[in-house]
Design a protein around this nucleic acid. Structure first.
Length: 210
DNA sequence: AAATGCGCCAACCGCGTGCGC
DNA sequence: AGCGCACGCGGTTGGCGCATT
């Protein structure tokens, strides 16, 4: 899809910006195949593309990655996004981590395009659990901010939930290190797979029971 | 058929964080 | 401790394409 054109700024004269061509995609994919999806500045140079590392990384994560699932977000996925957003707020990468094959950018876009209105409507309905109620009462603002500014009982619950989320991410990031070359230290959304989904299922089941 | 409005989504930007020196 | 670099994240932008007038 032809999108943004190259900017007219002086920086754009040095670096290519805007939409990626099929040829650029191919070059980047080849380079990543050889060197792995890390050190983006190096990859940007090595691939011979006149792009910044940031741009290459984004292109890979949102488009070129082989396990990307594109389009047609199912009802189940949509429901999951709604629930996770109620729980986590605008933590798109975390939400995406629970949806195998989906990217944070895609979920963010889907939320803005389809779910924002829906969520607003749902907010008016009674929340199914105490955690959700607490989060709703804080109007989906940043949880850590809330924790920092208040020491209410609700905040304690939020601290627990935030820490649990952190712990889960750390668990995922340290898992399967032996299958990917070992140089990907951070949580890799391309590898959390069904393990992530299982946690979500368990969590949501517990949430419904309570 | 042309003009206009609007939704979608790829891509950019700024900021925060982690890490090595 | 302070600095610089690399990377990740969330917010925002802006062009394309479809629907409506």
């Amino acid at each position: 899809m032809a999108k943004r054109l190259s900017s007219s700024s002086s920086a754009a004269a040095a670096l290519n910006k805007g939409s990626w061509t099929a040829d650029e995609d191919r070059k980047l994919a080849q380079c990543i195949e050889m060197h792995g999806p890390t050190r983006w500045k190096f990859l940007a140079l090595k691939s011979g593309l006149n792009r910044c590392g940031k741009s290459c990384r984004l292109r890979w994560l949102n488009y070129l990655r082989p396990d990307i699932k594109r389009g047609n977000i199912s009802d189940a996925e949509e429901d999951l996004i709604l629930r996770l957003h109620r729980l986590l707020g605008n933590r798109w990468s975390l939400i995406a981590g629970r949806l195998p094959g989906r990217t944070d950018n895609e979920i963010k876009n889907y939320w803005n395009a389809h779910l924002r209105k829906k969520a607003k409507l749902m907010e008016k309905l009674p929340a199914p659990s105490s955690t959700a109620t607490i989060l709703q009462d804080n109007n989906n603002e940043d949880r850590e901010k809330t924790v920092g500014s208040s020491c209410s009982t609700g905040a304690v619950e939020i601290i627990k939930e935030t820490q649990e989320s952190k712990d889960r991410d750390e668990y995922w990031s340290s898992d399967d290190d032996d299958d990917g070359g070992g140089d990907v230290e951070r949580f890799d959304s391309s590898r959390k797979g069904t393990k992530g989904l299982n946690w979500v299922k368990t969590f949501l089941e517990l949430e419904e029971e309570s």
